[in-house]
Design a protein around this nucleic acid. Sequence first.
DNA 1: CGATAGATTGAGAGTTTTCAACCGATGTGG
DNA 2: CCACATCGGTTGAAAACTCTCAATCTATCG
Lengths: 219, 219
Amino acid sequence: MNHFDFGKELFDRIQELAPQSLKLRTYQKDETIYHVGHEPEGLYFIKSGLVGLVDIAKNGDESLLRVFGHEHFFGHRSLISEEPYHATSIALKKTNILFINKEDLKNLCQDNSELLLYIAKVLAKELRRSEIRLKDMSSKKVADRIIESLIFLKTRYPHHKWTRREIGEFCGAKTETVSRTLSSLEQQGLIKREGRSIMIPEPQLLLDFIHKEEERHKI
Amino acid sequence: MNHFDFGKELFDRIQELAPQSLKLRTYQKDETIYHVGHEPEGLYFIKSGLVGLVDIAKNGDESLLRVFGHEHFFGHRSLISEEPYHATSIALKKTNILFINKEDLKNLCQDNSELLLYIAKVLAKELRRSEIRLKDMSSKKVADRIIESLIFLKTRYPHHKWTRREIGEFCGAKTETVSRTLSSLEQQGLIKREGRSIMIPEPQLLLDFIHKEEERHKI
DNA sequence: CGATAGATTGAGAGTTTTCAACCGATGTGG
DNA sequence: CCACATCGGTTGAAAACTCTCAATCTATCG
């Protein structure tokens, strides 16, 4: 939570080196940017908006694997590993994107080794986050996962109105479970709900609450 | 599952470029190689043996996040992201390792850009795998996760005698649940147990079984 | 051969989901 | 601007799943 996974520096540099290779694209809410299984074509940088990396399981359950916001880039994982996309990216709201072609990026990287290092760093941080979530899936109860996701999503992307569904897809919980948890948190005065939106008056209180929970569950 | 995440090519190259920077180390079974929270000191390459990347949750639950076998390297994630280790690496059996110092590796990478690309590729593949497991944690029932882990671990590391505990820690299940699932699979003739070791006579049958399960659970 | 760690099994408890019904906010077309 | 359709949210009760706890068993090793 300490620092956001960046992106700006990478695209500032690309802007500097090869501005002509950047193409502007606009996506509407719920529009698919790329599809699971397809071959990667390039790298995407978010000028404005919000993008979710989602995967739909065979049973129909959706998972929100990663979220990319203002000045983040995405599409890099499949590009580097030279595999088809393992998930689908969808605009969570109207989103403006700068796109750079795979070949153009490759050429740039060959002459500017700091670009690849930059991308590798982001990958490494994403792997860390993913594995921590993996651990949390087996060691934490839903309520705690929901609280942590809430804090994470609201802190990183405060301008998005996160739905119960999205929160659930992010932490492996059903919409109803998220709803119940939020009700309980409001009763305890830890959050405020106004219409559909959620406010966290004192994030530290919520974090303390999780830690108390963890004590309680410890052997 | 198609191809193993490599490592050999990277260390062959390092061997070629700077053999004097490689140090041989030996770890006994259950010995800690590096500790969560510590600063990374270098990169590890497995000459022989098996290493698990594990994290212990506050409630005491252990997770087996990744497994590294013959000719794999590890310790790269924290090295690239320049963060403290997010988990602990432990020898799952007696293991011989080639170690290269952080600074030596950095110098090599600066002059040989293919090394970093190689590491980045592995990171990208590991992220893919981690996110697929993340999705499976919310969409699949334990039994299916256990079967998939069994196939994965036995296919990649056939020479290790995987315990119920290790399988459980890999897929988020309790030892007893793994045991029950294995009993049921044996009754159905899908696996063979001999003493503590598990054999999969016909892996395809097991995979088909999962897919049938998934059909059954579909909406 | 005894000690110990790992494995198995059953019964009961706890957690989360499922299903169903209902509520409330938001936005659109008449 | 209202009526209404729609989407998201809430709540309860029951079902399903997985874990916990406890007892027992059995490989394996010194």
